[in-house]
Nucleic acid binder design. Structure first.
Length: 555
RNA sequence: UCCCCGAUGGUGUAAUGGUAACACACCGGUUUUUGGUGCCGUUAUUCCAGGUUCGAGUCCUGGUCGGGGAACCA
């Protein structure tokens, strides 16, 4: 069935291109894609889409995918990020079956490419300052000027480039530039810098190199070296494509091809590694994996499933138009997945005492309840019931109108999987807050064997007071108050001060003592929750709310 | 000022010259021992102007609007 749906679905523009390429026998019909993260930050939901596209397309067409770390700027990169990225991709259940590579693996080859360019008169060493070069670059609509070093001989350039490589030149004193056209309409074609000197230790090559290739000189050639057939990237690289092609053609190497598509944007969030880093560094969140972060690690800790993220990536589509996806689609993807799979349990987050006056003191009984009404195979379990229970403070109100289904003076409600109870009275503290509600239960209304004939409009969740276990529950709201956090200036000003609410004395049904990290539960009537992998310990359980249940009640 | 890309309901995505559809959101109804889920329904869409054509969201021309484009970042 899901298969049929896939068959029928129209092809997006990249699928159409791939199918045309295969039909034309291009690359012998092979499909090899790559995902090329720079290890300078954690992956976020936007990367998740890119991952789903590149890995998904290869899988769909019987091809493979390489994971390649684009590590040409040692100042910002580290193995911490490499490890986190590998973990996140694996968690999304994608396999880099084409292999794991690093652009730094190709430093030697890239250096040879550069020498080749020099020898052919297609590159030169420039001794100018970056200010001077910027001044000569011209502007959109106005051509630039040639560098005074542009016409050095290949021999001199090669000698100078070797000096750069051997560490004889100071940082910033020289660069290698491609010799293209200082009058080109595309600014990137105006003799772009392709190598710069950096006396910085690289996380993989150590101090072997003091010259490092720039992105444009590394990316396309790396694709070419690996024989990538379809190099997919985001729209921001459209302007780079002519350069990408220029290097490949000039060097006469494997003709890989770049295709751009629109990156994912989500409202009420920011999607830039640099800005997410700022949230981390300024302490606005509890690390890259804070459950409010749009990072893959944050979503994982929050309770998102890999399946829900993959479905989401599928739903947002692939096109060239800039987009802003509504976060509700992400939330829907999670609910849709979890509704079918999550075991139901009962938990009370804002507990008040509920006493069943006509239930025998000191007694209790275990009542059978289903684990998942959407999945019979999930089976049943027993929950303890007794005279003293915890109920949700929000489920009782003194003054109500006809739309109120829950407990109130004169009202009757069903306790989920247990009995129908009727209001008797309640206690309040000096401030007027309700502290305790008293009811009588209807004996022959027991769940599944109800012959009472009494009809209750509302159903409440509850937990037996003597069996309950305590836990901390963390409720999350959107990190930003603004749909576009950057619309009115600094996104830090748009932070939602109430994005984290910690409930410390929540009451859970006893089965949750064995809650497994990684399992997401539905707390009946409340939402989906999972053990916090960072702070939860057996003696002090901590749960995160992944997402609320959809609330159709407009009270 | 120049180059590149884009423009379809509130948000996304389809329709590949032939009845503008699907999802999310919204609103309403229904079922329900979760005010969840399910089911049914309502609202609402081709940027503008010309042209080609029997027929244009789709092709052509011009415009408008939006995004991207100057780093020894990727």
């Amino acid at each position: 069935m899901a298969q049929d749906e896939k068959e029928k679905r129209p092809l997006h523009f990249i699928e159409q291109k791939i199918e045309a390429d295969i039909a034309a026998g291009k690359h012998g019909g092979a499909v090899l894609t790559r995902f090329p993260p720079e290890p300078n930050g954690y992956l976020h939901i936007g990367h998740a889409k890119a991952i789903c596209v590149s890995f998904g397309l290869a899988a769909k067409y019987g091809g493979k995918t390489n994971l390649r770390f684009d590590d040409t700027n040692p100042e910002k990169e580290s193995t911490e990020y490499v490890d986190a990225i590998r973990k996140d991709i694996a968690w999304l259940q994608f396999e880099w079956n084409g292999g794991e590579y690093y652009t730094s693996d190709y430093f030697e080859q890239l250096y040879d490419f550069a020498c080749k360019l020099i020898l052919r008169g297609n590159a030169y060493v420039d001794d100018q300052s970056s200010e001077d070069m910027a001044a000569q670059k011209g502007a959109p609509g106005q051509p630039g000027q040639n560098s005074p070093f542009r016409d050095r001989s290949p021999e001199e350039n090669l000698r100078l480039f070797e000096e750069m490589k051997s560490g004889d030149c100071e940082e910033g004193s020289r660069v290698l530039r491609a010799k293209i056209d200082m009058g080109h309409d595309n600014m990137l074609m105006r003799d772009p810098i392709i190598y710069r000197i950096k006396f910085v230790e690289h996380h993989r090559t150590g101090r072997d190199w003091v010259i490092y290739p720039m992105y444009d000189f590394a990316h396309g050639q790396s694709d070419s070296i690996e024989h990538i057939t379809h190099s997919l990237c985001s729209l921001e690289f459209e302007n780079h494509r002519p350069l990408y092609n220029w290097f490949i053609q000039t060097l006469g190497i494997y003709p890989t091809e770049q295709t751009e598509f629109a990156r994912l944007n989500l409202n009420y969030t920011i999607m830039s590694k640099r800005k997410l880093l700022r949230l981390v560094e300024e302490g606005a969140v509890d690390g890259w994996d804070d459950p409010r972060m749009p990072t893959i690690s944050g979503l994982r800790r929050r309770g998102y499933t890999p399946e829900s993220i993959r479905v989401f990536a599928d739903r947002v589509g692939v096109a060239k138009r800039n987009n802003v996806i509504d976060v509700s689609l992400l939330e829907w993807s999670l609910r849709d997945d979890l509704n079918r799979r999550a075991p139901r349990v009962m938990a009370v987050l804002n507990p008040i005492k509920l006493v069943v006056l006509n239930y025998p003191e000191g007694e209790s009984e275990w009542l059978e309840t289903v684990n998942n009404p959407e999945d019979e195979s999930a089976g049943t379990r027993e929950v303890p019931f007794g005279r003293e229970l915890w109920m949700e403070a929000d489920d009782f109100k003194i003054e109500v109108n006809k739309k109120w289904f829950r407990l109130a003076p004169g009202r009757v409600v069903r306790l989920k999987s247990a009995y129908i109870v009727e209001y008797v009275d309640h206690l309040t503290d000096e401030a007027g807050n309700v502290t305790e509600v008293h009811v009588n239960y209807i004996q022959n209304s027991r769940s599944g064997q109800d012959v009472s004939g009494v009809k209750a409009k509302g159903t409440l969740h509850w937990v037996s007071r003597s069996h309950a276990i305590d836990a901390e529950v963390r409720l999350y709201d959107r990190l930003f108050n603004e749909s576009d956090p950057e619309a009115s200036g600094d996104f830090m000003d748009a932070l939602n001060e109430d994005s984290l609410q910690i409930k410390s004395k929540c009451k859970l049904e006893p089965s949750l003592a064995n809650a497994q990290t990684g399992t997401v539960y539905q707390f009946t009537r409340l939402g989906y929750f999972t053990i916090d992998s960072k702070y939860s310990v057996p003696s002090g359980l901590v749960f995160n709310r992944a997402v609320t249940l959809k609330d159709g009640w407009k009270g």
